[in-house]
Design a protein around this nucleic acid. Structure first.
Lengths: 259, 259
DNA sequence: CCCTCGATGCTCATTAATGCTCGTTTCTTA
DNA sequence: TAAGAAACGAGCATTAATGAGCATCGAGGG
């Protein structure tokens, strides 16, 4: 049994019984108690369960629907960008997220924030990304607000007038936008005009706009324009960003973070 | 076997099993483990799968875990109910679906409909169930419209005023509602009032209301009322329904289908 | 015919995962 | 309240997986 299977099996048992002791889990999985403790600790980190002395209890009574444990891959560019981005998000903030692999990583990092207790959510995340909402729906300490709309198969982003409608009703502290292209001259862009329209609304409603993009996206320009460079407050990217590109953004008033 | 063929074969195996070990893949493809690792790494780069130590897991937003005790109990009944329900849905219809395991099965069956071609969707599905939208988002011949709102961890249903808002803008041919309780006297019920409110809107907007519920739900009454029995046109359930219960519903004008 | 280049397989140093031990913390109960 | 038991976390050794580097093979082009 692989580690991944075991973690999922633990969630299964937990969803079924509501609680699970370290000893019983060790016996069922045919591994040592130390391993089970490490597993529980990791799942607790991901807010999938709550540690108790001697065992763990289920975090949500999600009855029949599949729980999935996400394998953490180590220290990729995207994850460093995600960690750096999460660093600038204060507790209790209202965050907007669009779709994309980088923003999904950001969402995963944000989801591991500790529960502040008192029933208040550690974060409120407004997103049009179906996959992000699916992953985070089981975390009780993060409030997810999903826009409506029609999902695009490639990106899992919800688009269309129904997606736009929600933005009449919310305001955001920080919009975190993953883009496929950004230049100091043309601003942030993506290939699809429907996505761009929804992303623009996210940016419009936010006090602060953070663009996340790995080095391959910087200097690129795509078809649909999301917003201008002056709208962007912060750009989080990786070390592959050249000094001259960084200078161009800095001159345009963008804070550049190289993770 | 070319490299391209091998990558496709790996994805196929992965889609089938949900996971694949490096060793097994190497044996199946008759190549070395090193090659498989390179393949996995490349596919992971393309977000087609997720690496784990010792193998890889499928990246599909929704893959079912092989053994779920709870679902296993009613699995075949649910699938028969789902098949019977899909039988009364005409081509090209606009369907409303709420959340729950039975309606998820219905969605799966509906998604297997052949593509009519001509770019027109075989079906349009309006739903407030996050998991259903996630699963069907990749099917190009089914148009998915997701309501907005806040997901409830227990059921993956989106609720709240944002979810309700969408119903000003759509009409449905058939609403298919999974419920946790239905009686001839009290109508359809579920445990949560927010979900009930959204489900009621689905029923209101539809020409025809179909309730799906396995035998354990019939005769049960839960806290929140979704709609009255006279609103329900059809009840699809399994053979465990007693004749007297069936008669009660038939007298109330409900067509009862025992799958 | 030879050369180039990409794909593959092999070797080896590195790293993640696991189980064990031991000192410390926490709970139980006398 | 205090002693004993249970659970925990840290540290360490062992094993297996990994990834980097290098050699080989084969198709295609000059």
């Amino acid at each position: 049994m692989t580690r991944h299977e075991r973690l999922n099996a633990l969630l299964e048992l937990l969803a079924d019984a509501g609680q699970l002791s370290v000893e019983e889990a060790a016996a069922r999985m045919a591994v040592s108690a130390a391993t089970i403790r490490r597993d529980f600790d990791e799942l607790a980190q991901q807010q999938m369960l709550t540690r108790t002395r001697g065992g763990a209890v289920a975090n949500s009574v999600s009855y029949d629907l599949p729980l999935r444990y996400k394998t953490a891959r180590h220290a990729s560019e995207k994850q460093r960008i995600a960690a750096a981005t999460a660093g600038i998000v204060p507790m209790g903030a209202i965050i907007g997220l669009n779709g994309g692999t980088t923003t999904t990583e950001v969402a995963r990092v944000l989801a591991t924030r500790p529960d502040p207790g008192g029933g208040r959510p550690a974060l409120t995340i407004v997103t049009n990304a179906l996959n992000i909402a699916s992953e985070l729906a089981v975390r009780p300490h993060v409030k997810i607000v999903l826009t409506g709309g029609v999902p695009r198969p490639q990106s899992y982003e919800l688009t269309g007038p129904l997606a736009a409608g929600i933005f009449d009703h919310v305001t955001l502290d920080i919009a975190i936008l993953g883009v496929t292209g950004i230049t100091a001259e043309h601003g942030a862009t993506c290939p699809n005009e429907d996505e761009a329209a929804v992303n623009r609304l996210l940016a419009d409603r936010a006090d602060q706009v953070v663009v996340v993009a790995d080095g391959s996206k910087v200097g690129r320009r795509d078809f649909a324009r999301i917003c201008d460079t002056v709208t962007v407050d912060t750009l989080v990217t990786d070390e592959t960003l050249s000094d001259e590109d960084a200078a161009a953004f800095t001159e345009a008033g963008v804070v550049v973070i190289r993770a």
